[in-house]
C-alpha cells in the first residue's frame, strides 16, 4: 500500500532547458537518484543528465510485429487449407505468396498498436491524478514554457530542509514542496 500522506517531493522551477540540465547534473553529483524532470517538449540533454535508458518500447514493438505476422499467416493458412478449402482458378490451397500481403499489413498493425499502447503502459498512463498537479506553478507552466526538476521524497538522501537548501543554491525561479 503506497503512502498516501506526506511529501511527494521538492519541485524546482527553471526558465530555460540549459538551467534545468545544469541543475540535474548538480543533483546527480550531490548523490540524488530518485528525481525527474518535467519539460514542455522532449529535451535530450536532460534525458542524458538523468541517464534515462529504457528500450522496452522497441522490444514490445518487435514482439507485436512477430505476433501480427504469425497470427495473420497462420489464420490465412488454416482458413484456406483446412477450414474453407475452395479451388480458385486451380491455384494451390496453400498460396503462400498471396498470404504475405495481409500478413505484412498485420505485422504493421500489431507492431504499431504495441508501440503506442506499450509506450502509454510503460509510462503508467492514463493517470488523471498525480501529486505534482497539486503545485499551481506546475499546472501553469509544465506543458507551456517552464522546466521543472523534482527531487522525490523516496530518495534516501532526501531531507526536507537540506534538499530545499540544495535546490535554492541552483538559482531556480522557485522551490515548492509538493504534497502527496
Amino acid at each position: 500500500m503506497p503512502v498516501m500522506y506526506g511529501t511527494y517531493g521538492l519541485l524546482a522551477e527553471f526558465d530555460t532547458p540549459a538551467e534545468l540540465t545544469r541543475a540535474t547534473y548538480a543533483a546527480k553529483e550531490a548523490g540524488y537518484r530518485r528525481m525527474e524532470c518535467y519539460t514542455p517538449y522532449p529535451v535530450e540533454e536532460v534525458a542524458s543528465a538523468l541517464d534515462v535508458h529504457d528500450n522496452r518500447v522497441p522490444l514490445l514493438t518487435l514482439l507485436g510485429g512477430l505476433m501480427g505476422v504469425t497470427t495473420a499467416f497462420l489464420m490465412e493458412t488454416w482458413i484456406s487449407v483446412w477450414s474453407y478449402p475452395i479451388n480458385v482458378a486451380g491455384r494451390p490451397l496453400f498460396s503462400w505468396p498471396a498470404f504475405i500481403i495481409p500478413a505484412y499489413e498485420w505485422t504493421i498493425l500489431f507492431a504499431g498498436l504495441s508501440a503506442c499502447f506499450g509506450m502509454f503502459a510503460l509510462n503508467g498512463l492514463p493517470q488523471p491524478y498525480h501529486p505534482l498537479f497539486n503545485a499551481p506553478n506546475f499546472r501553469l507552466g509544465a506543458t507551456d514554457n517552464k522546466f521543472f526538476l523534482c527531487l522525490e521524497a523516496i530518495d534516501p538522501q532526501f531531507d526536507r530542509e537540506q534538499s530545499r537548501a540544495f535546490l535554492e543554491q541552483l538559482q531556480p525561479v522557485s522551490v515548492v514542496e509538493v504534497d502527496l
Binding site: 525527474e36 524532470c37 518535467y38 519539460t39 514542455p40 522532449p42 529535451v43 536532460v46 534525458a47 538523468l50 534515462v52 529504457d54 502509454f120 509510462n123 498512463l125 492514463p126 493517470q127 488523471p128 491524478y129 498525480h130 505534482l132 498537479f133 506546475f138 509544465a142 506543458t143
Partner: peptide, 8 residues
C-alpha cells in the same frame, strides 16, 4: 491521459 511531460 494525465500527461505531465516527465522526461522518462
Amino acid at each position: 491521459l494525465g500527461w505531465r511531460g516527465s522526461t522518462r
